[in-house]
Nucleic acid binder design. Sequence first.
DNA 1: ATCAACGTAAGG
DNA 2: CCTTACGTTGAT
Length: 462
Amino acid sequence: MFDLTRSICVENGLTRSSGIENGLTRSSGIENGLTRSSGIENSLTRSSGIENGLTRSSGIENGLTRSSGIENGLTRSSGIENGLTRSSGIENSLTRSSGIENGPSQYDHSVHSHSSTTTTNGHNHHGQCCAVTMDGCGLTPVLDYTAEMERYRSFANFYAKTNVNMNAVNSMNFPQSAKLARITPPMFPGGRLGVAGVTPWGCHDNVNMNINAAAMLWGRKPPVHQATPLAPPTTHPPPLATHMQPHPHRTGGEGKQHGGHASSSQGQETHHHHGNNNFLSGYTTTDHMTKQGHTHQDMLSLSDRNSSCNGGGGANGVNMPNFPAGMLGLPPGVIVMAMGSHNGVNIPDSSHFQMATNHNQMLSDCHHANQTNSSPCPSTSPGMTSGGQGSGASKRKRKRCGVCAPCRRLINCGVCSACRNRKTGHQICKFRKCDELKKKAGSIQLESPPSVPSGEAFRWFF
DNA sequence: ATCAACGTAAGG
DNA sequence: CCTTACGTTGAT
Ligand SMILES: [Zn+2]
Ligand SMILES: [Zn+2]
């Protein structure tokens, strides 16, 4: 197992060895990012903005300008962030749509669609901590999260180091093609780099892959089941689905459930709080930090304090042994891999590249997130008040929908402005910023159809 | 348009 | 209390 993973890493190469830090560090803000969305809209002025996208092109340059090369590299070129970003309409479109595709979600978001407020929440937790491989997709790609991470990291390093002409690269390689390709932004380098369009996982097309994969890997349940018939029950329950269920508990109630107890259900629970989930963090053994911005090392929870997650086995790569799948809620076939630590990479701040784990609120965010339908939670809300959001309520809720692509994304890119600035910015990774929330802020926007899975959505499963 | 930072919801 | 992250503001 390791080998594979590793090897990959290696290939990517460059990477590891050195220093990372270069680049990534904070320097300036690069990315376009979703971030502020709201702010923008606010300002009436801006409103039109539209083309900005175009306009912004300059933005790109900015990128360069700004900081050091590295970022440039990552940022723009990589497109990673860009991808998501709202700024340009286009991308959004793509993005969105794709998000949707995630498909797996069968749930209808439609439902809550914009009800931003309400939305569902729930926790999702479930397996997370480790990299898992599974053959889902039917493609049987091995989803090795670890590998992914490695790649990602490598990628980052790559850019970081190469100050060089990213330009060339940028223009040449990934540009939008990636987007077009439907690759979701933070894609992992693979796409860009050599492998066109292939996700780390090996699946090609779907953006979903990213998300889903991630989701699956980490246990966020891909939305499934439930109401919507879409998902053919018969078939395959989405791989993970099994365990992952909706746990009523969380959702159920609504707001708080204090579910702690409930937890038992899945097993996983545990909560340690691990603060960040970054890719890197894992590796960097050293620094962990605790609060916003800082990381814990254990993102995988392998180490696990209390043990909840796994017994603590040290061994990484394997399936169950150390990791009781059950605990994680992993489906039988899944192979869990631990991430190797060490490796060298360090990123300055570990906060980058976090992965959302349950433990932390991070992704879990349980509260709001996920669950989709299953639970009732959705709307919930305390406040609700009249109409939820739209109308009167000036206050819309702050919850994220949990079903959109960004919401389903479990990993923090580690390079976007939000990630880099987590301590003070207190913002979620741009790539993970809920579309719904963005909309609100912005208000308008097209609204893609929230998500309903088109056929593609399911592709992943088959 | 974006970034960065702050204050503060919100879940635990 | 802690953590995560939303919404806002001000600067660029
Ligand atoms: Zn990020
Ligand atoms: Zn969302």
